[in-house]
Amino acid sequence: MLEGKVKWFNSEKGFGFIEVEGQDDVFVHFSAIQGEGFKTLEEGQAVSFEIVEGNRGPQAANVTKEA
């Protein structure tokens, strides 16, 4: 699992990017966010995740919000 911070997330469109120190930003789709209820992320929020190869390159999977 990697750790990063949410760079930005558009809850209307359901996607955004996660910043990872020393690496390129990683695309995140709302469907990759773990948990119940409305799936969104806040700018600057700490998250842990895995990287998988998507249709358009690397993207986040199994995203969990850090306490």
Rank of each mutant, 00 (worst) to 15 (best):
N10R: 09
K7W: 03
G16V: 01
W8A: 03
D24C: 05
E42P: 07
G37L: 08
D25A: 10
E53A: 09
V20T: 12
G37M: 10
G54H: 05
G37E: 08
N62F: 04
E21Q: 10
E3K: 15
G22P: 03
A60Y: 00
V52P: 02
K13M: 10
A60L: 01
S11D: 07
V28W: 02
V20E: 02
G35W: 12
F17Q: 04
A60S: 05
G14R: 04
E66R: 15
F9A: 02
E19L: 14
L2Y: 10
E50N: 14
K39F: 05
G4Y: 02
Q34K: 15
G22E: 07
A61K: 15
G54I: 06
S48A: 10
Q34G: 12
D24V: 15
G37Y: 12
W8M: 06
F49K: 00
G44Q: 10
G57T: 04
L41K: 01
L41W: 02
K5F: 05
L2D: 04
Q23T: 12
I18C: 02
G44I: 02
K65G: 14
G14W: 02
E43C: 05
Q23A: 08
Q34T: 15
N10W: 09
D25R: 08
V26K: 03
E66P: 14
V26D: 00
V20N: 04
G35F: 08
A67C: 06
I18H: 00
T64D: 07
K5Y: 07
V52C: 07
V26M: 06
G16P: 00
Q23H: 13
E66N: 12
G16M: 01
G54F: 06
E21I: 10
V47Y: 02
K13T: 07
K65M: 11
A46N: 12
G54Y: 06
V47F: 01
E42T: 13
A61D: 14
E50T: 15
F27G: 02
E21K: 09
L41E: 01
K13Q: 11
D25E: 06
K39L: 13
S31P: 07
G54C: 04
K39G: 08
L41Q: 01
E36G: 07
V6Y: 01
F27V: 03
V47P: 00
K13G: 07
F30D: 02
W8C: 05
F27S: 02
